[in-house]
Each structure stands twice: as structure tokens, then as C-alpha cells.
Simulated assay, not measured.
Amino acid sequence: MSERRGHPAEIRADMAAAVRLEWWNVGWSISIIVAMGLAMGSSQAMKTAWVEDMLGLVPPIAFLIAARFERRPSNARFHYGFDRVNGLGFLIAAVALAAVGLFLLRDAVVALVTAEHVSIGSARLFGHDLWLGWFMLAAQAYATIPPLVIGHMELPLAKRLRDKLLHTDALMNKANWQTGVAGFLGVAGLGMGWWWADSVAAAIISLSIIADGIKALRVATSELVDGVPCALDSSKQSEEAAAVAKALRKRFPGARVLMRETGRYIRAEVVGVSPPRNFDSKTFEIPGLDDRWRLESIAFRL
């Protein structure tokens, strides 16, 4: 058992583009982490943004690993191949998002409750006192640009590939550039003497991370326990799955139609009828299913 899987021809170009984009994502993220780490000082908002930037490495790395495994053939141990590796990476990214978001929110709340006053010092440079907050602001400004560009490029690829992991990474990049803006305002608030601005900015960032993590967890859990195929951005049934179910119920009235999602693919099963002769799932007409490659198989059992 060593059937070569590979990606369908319809999405190979998009998969190659997504892999290249994620390598760029990793490289830019590392540069942001270094810049933020050197400039963050004692700012809570900067610390929160720095941790989120580190966390932002999880989805692209998970995607790159999953993309490599997806191309592997089935074998004696994994009869159905490795389609679900993408879903596993999606779950890991979702757990990381939610857990770290909760941790960072706790830190921000503690700083507010204890009225922790963060101060940003100065450094002597070429005979002049230079406020270190300027370095923080420059790092935050830099940290907003790559996520904004990469996230914008990821969204259309994620939709065409029906890739929830890539879509989560796009949302993570959106959160990252928003984090940069919130951190920028937090540091600026400290410079104006507002001691609470830093912690408030950190709390806002944390709540955004938690919201994305919880949403991703719901969808990832549904897939891994054989739930119906979900839309990219919600736990509701996808339009493609609804189209498959409608066509099969029309063709086989009275039968029970079951569906599950394995990675980016849909597997359907018709229960209560014998396998019809000369039935070809590849040519079976399904109105509303534009991306035919998504339908992996249609099985029958009494």
C-alpha cells in the first residue's frame, strides 16, 4: 500500500505559492521578534506583543510541516494517508493562541490591579539624553508592516485552498499588526505620563488573541472528531458540504448522508443503499460545488 497522494492539480500552484509565502512569514517574524526583544524594556504592552510575535511562528511552521506530510503516500500504518496532518497543525495553533492569550491577560490584569507604574528611562548618546521609548515606538512601527502585507496575501490563498491553518495564520497576522498599533499607543501613553495605558493596551491585545484562539479551537475540534465540514471562519457547515448532501439526498431519496472533513477534503457516505452500478463520484453532478477537487470520495453501505 503505497499509493502516491500529492495535491490535486487544481491547487498545486496555490500550494506552492502558500509554501513560499510561509517561508517569508517565518523569516520576517524572526526579524520582528529580534527587534521587539531588543527594544521592549519593562513595557507590559511590548512584552505582550513580543510573546504574540513568538506565538505567530506556530501557524506558519505547522503549515509547512503539514504541507510536506500531505504529499506522502499512504502506507501499512496510515491507510488513508496524511490529509489530517493539516487539521492537527490547526489544533496546535488554536491551543497555543488560547493558552498564551489567557496567560498574557492575567499579567495585564495583575499590573492594573496592583497599579504597577512602568517607567521608560533614557540613555546617553553622543552627549544627549535619548528617551528609550523612541526605540520601542520604532520597533512597534516595524512590527506592523510585514504582518499586514503577509496576512493580506494569505487570505485569498486560504480561501482557494480551503485551508483552515493558513486562514488562522492570516487572522494571526491581522492580530499582530493590530497588536503593533495597540502597543505603539501604550508606549506613547507612558511617555505622556499615563501609567495605566501600557497595561490597558496589553489587555486589549490579550483579549484579541483569546477570541481568535477560542474560535479556532471550536472548528479544529469539530474536524478531529469527524464533525461535518465547516466553513473557514466558523463552526457552521460549509456551503460545499451542504451542496454535496443536497445532491446525494436527491439522487438517493430516503438514504442517510454522512459527511466528515479530513484536512481540506470532504468524504461522504450514503447509508441505506447498495452501491449503484456505474456510479462515478468524479462525474456525479453536484450543483453549487465549484471546487470539485474537495470531494475526496463517496462511499456506500447498507
Score class of each variant (00 low, 15 high):
residue 113 V to E: 10
residue 149 V to F: 02
residue 118 V to H: 09
residue 152 H to T: 14
residue 143 A to I: 07
residue 112 L to I: 13
residue 117 H to D: 14
residue 144 T to R: 01
residue 155 L to P: 00
residue 133 G to M: 09
residue 134 W to G: 13
residue 136 M to C: 00
residue 155 L to T: 12
residue 135 F to V: 09
residue 138 A to V: 13
residue 150 I to M: 02
residue 134 W to P: 09
residue 149 V to T: 01
residue 136 M to D: 01
residue 111 A to L: 07
residue 124 R to L: 15
residue 112 L to F: 02
residue 155 L to N: 08
residue 162 R to T: 14
residue 139 A to I: 03
residue 157 L to H: 00
residue 123 A to D: 11
residue 132 L to D: 04
residue 159 K to Y: 04
residue 155 L to V: 12
residue 138 A to M: 09
residue 132 L to M: 08
residue 161 L to K: 01
residue 123 A to C: 04
residue 159 K to H: 14
residue 159 K to D: 14
residue 151 G to C: 02
residue 136 M to S: 13
residue 122 S to T: 12
residue 138 A to Y: 11
residue 131 W to C: 01
residue 123 A to P: 00
residue 129 D to N: 10
residue 114 T to V: 12
residue 121 G to M: 02
residue 136 M to N: 00
residue 140 Q to V: 08
residue 158 A to W: 12
residue 121 G to R: 04
residue 160 R to C: 07
residue 140 Q to F: 15
residue 120 I to G: 02
residue 141 A to G: 15
residue 137 L to G: 06
residue 139 A to L: 05
residue 152 H to Y: 14
residue 125 L to G: 03
residue 130 L to E: 07
residue 159 K to N: 12
residue 143 A to L: 08
residue 118 V to G: 03
residue 133 G to H: 06
residue 153 M to Q: 06
residue 163 D to Q: 11
residue 139 A to F: 04
residue 128 H to F: 11
residue 143 A to R: 02
residue 153 M to A: 10
residue 131 W to G: 03
residue 132 L to K: 06
residue 138 A to N: 01
residue 136 M to V: 00
residue 139 A to S: 06
residue 155 L to G: 01
residue 155 L to C: 05
residue 120 I to P: 00
residue 144 T to S: 10
residue 124 R to W: 10
residue 118 V to N: 01
residue 121 G to T: 06
residue 128 H to W: 10
residue 119 S to L: 08
residue 147 P to R: 06
residue 148 L to S: 10
residue 134 W to L: 08
residue 151 G to I: 01
residue 159 K to W: 11
residue 163 D to G: 04
residue 137 L to M: 11
residue 154 E to F: 02
residue 116 E to S: 09
residue 158 A to F: 12
residue 141 A to F: 15
residue 161 L to V: 07
residue 129 D to A: 04
residue 125 L to F: 11
residue 162 R to H: 14
residue 113 V to F: 06
residue 129 D to Y: 06
residue 141 A to E: 08
residue 142 Y to H: 07
residue 141 A to I: 13
residue 136 M to Q: 15
residue 164 K to I: 10
residue 128 H to E: 14
residue 149 V to K: 01
residue 157 L to N: 07
residue 113 V to T: 11
residue 152 H to M: 13
residue 124 R to K: 13
residue 144 T to V: 14
residue 114 T to A: 13
residue 159 K to L: 08
residue 126 F to E: 11
residue 149 V to I: 13
residue 156 P to G: 04
residue 142 Y to N: 09
residue 115 A to H: 15
residue 125 L to V: 14
residue 132 L to N: 03
residue 112 L to P: 08
residue 123 A to M: 12
residue 135 F to T: 13
residue 135 F to N: 10
residue 126 F to K: 05
residue 162 R to Y: 12
residue 138 A to S: 08
residue 130 L to F: 15
residue 160 R to A: 00
residue 141 A to D: 13
residue 144 T to F: 14
residue 159 K to V: 12
residue 148 L to F: 15
residue 124 R to V: 14
residue 153 M to V: 02
residue 159 K to M: 07
residue 141 A to P: 07
residue 149 V to W: 09
residue 145 I to V: 15
residue 123 A to K: 10
residue 137 L to C: 01
residue 111 A to W: 11
residue 137 L to K: 03
residue 147 P to C: 03
residue 120 I to E: 03
residue 127 G to N: 05
residue 127 G to F: 05
residue 126 F to S: 13
residue 126 F to Q: 09
residue 152 H to I: 07
residue 148 L to T: 11
residue 136 M to Y: 00
residue 131 W to M: 02
residue 119 S to D: 05
residue 163 D to S: 15
residue 137 L to Y: 04
residue 112 L to N: 03
residue 147 P to Y: 03
residue 131 W to E: 00
residue 117 H to E: 15
